[in-house]
């Protein structure tokens, strides 16, 4: 049967900015409710609309945001990475084991206390990602299965590092990555988050590699006939996701001041949620980092807003679950008129 008639798209598309509108709408809703409380005299000020709270929200989403950047690449390449939470925990544990003064060795300099844990954590994360990528591209195993394996294995390795014990008493220099503030205002994790998004955006939109990620996710066979080394592309996508999990592990460990074996449990789901709310398709080939950024923000504002309003955590989960499904329903209806 003949093809569909070409139809020009409207110049201003809700498609492109719908997520921003949704985000602004959510902010307006939360601040409205807060304002009502102020007018009723329950609260002295609108606590939602303060610079401090904005920074708090950004601080709170920094870990999930960094994970979601890696997840965006993975999802666009038509894959999924369930292991990011466990790899985060593993990297955090590796970092902590280098950043504590109670390893029996006391001659380490302060510089070493920063460089060694950071390098080790990033390498550890990237290595886990490389194993994922190798299994997926070499053996043609579904990403879901391969990374499910890594989800368990990395959690096991985390516990194996210390025999199941947490590591605390971390060097203050290392903890700067989680608790430091630039100019006394902007938390370091927020700076890292923004840098990661900026660099990733450039990679995805301006480089040949970024273009190949879209192509491999859109149609792997066509990508191959176009001369793309699809195996290498997939490999690097998972290495990147692992690397960013390592970075997220550094932030979380530095923030909380100790590496827990159960850290990052089910974080992969929040990362996937941010990507999906941001408009990426789990079928691959479609997705944007700006979408993911606002997806992460929406989750952050919702958590923050519901916390401020004193909504109990079980209701928060119900609302969050509904939001994810509704976002995808709206998205799929928009795509297929």
């Amino acid at each position: 049967m003949s093809g569909t008639t070409p139809i020009a798209k409207p110049t201003f598309s809700l498609q492109k900015y719908g997520i921003v509108l949704a985000f602004l709408g959510l902010c307006a809703l939360v601040s409205l409710v807060c304002q009502i409380k102020v007018m009723q005299g329950v609260w002295p000020v609108n606590v939602f609309l303060t610079l401090n709270n904005l920074m708090l929200i950004l601080h709170q989403i920094s870990v999930n945001g960094v994970l979601a950047v890696g997840m965006t690449f993975v999802v666009i390449s038509a894959g999924i990475d369930l292991s990011v939470g466990s790899v985060l925990a593993f990297s955090g544990m590796v970092a902590a084991s280098f950043a504590t003064r109670y390893t029996g060795v006391t001659v380490w300099s302060d510089t070493y206390m920063v460089l060694a844990p950071v390098t080790a954590a990033l390498l550890g994360g990237a290595l886990c990602g490389a194993v994922n990528g190798w299994i997926i591209s070499r053996f043609r195993i579904q990403a879901f299965i391969a990374t499910l394996g890594m989800l368990l294995a990395a959690r096991g390795m985390t516990m194996a590092v210390t025999g199941g014990n947490p590591i605390s008493a971390l060097s203050p220099d290392f903890r700067w990555f989680g608790t430091g503030r630039l100019f006394g205002v902007v938390p370091v994790p927020v700076i890292i988050l923004i840098l990661v998004f900026a660099v990733a955006w450039v990679i995805l939109n301006k480089t040949v590699f970024g273009r190949y990620v879209y192509a491999v996710g859109g149609n792997e066979k066509s990508a191959r006939t176009s001369g793309i080394n699809t195996r290498a592309v997939l490999m690097w996508v998972y290495v990147l996701a692992g690397f960013l999990s390592g970075l997220a592990g550094i932030i979380l460990t530095a923030k909380t001041g100790s590496a827990q074996t159960a850290a990052g449990t089910s974080y992969e789901l929040d990362a996937i949620a941010a990507v999906v709310i941001g408009g990426a398709s789990l079928a691959g080939g479609v997705g944007r980092l700006t979408g993911t950024f606002f997806g992460a923000l929406i989750i952050g504002v919702m958590n923050n807003g519901l916390d401020i309003l004193g909504v109990e955590s079980f209701y928060q989960l119900i609302i969050k679950g509904a939001l994810i499904v509704i976002a995808v329903i709206i998205d799929s209806r928009r795509m297929s008129p």
């Binding site: 480089t207 040949v208 879209y214 859109g218 149609n219 066509s222 990508a223 191959r224 006939t225 080939g285």
Partner: peptide, 26 residues
């Protein structure tokens, strides 16, 4: 099946084989 990335734009498809030849440091 193996010629086009159907969900991508006309432009992205047209330059898919070529981008590797018009890049600088990636």
């Amino acid at each position: 099946r193996s010629g086009l990335v159907l969900c991508a734009s006309v432009g992205a498809n047209l330059s898919l084989s070529k981008v590797r030849f018009i890049q600088r440091l990636g």
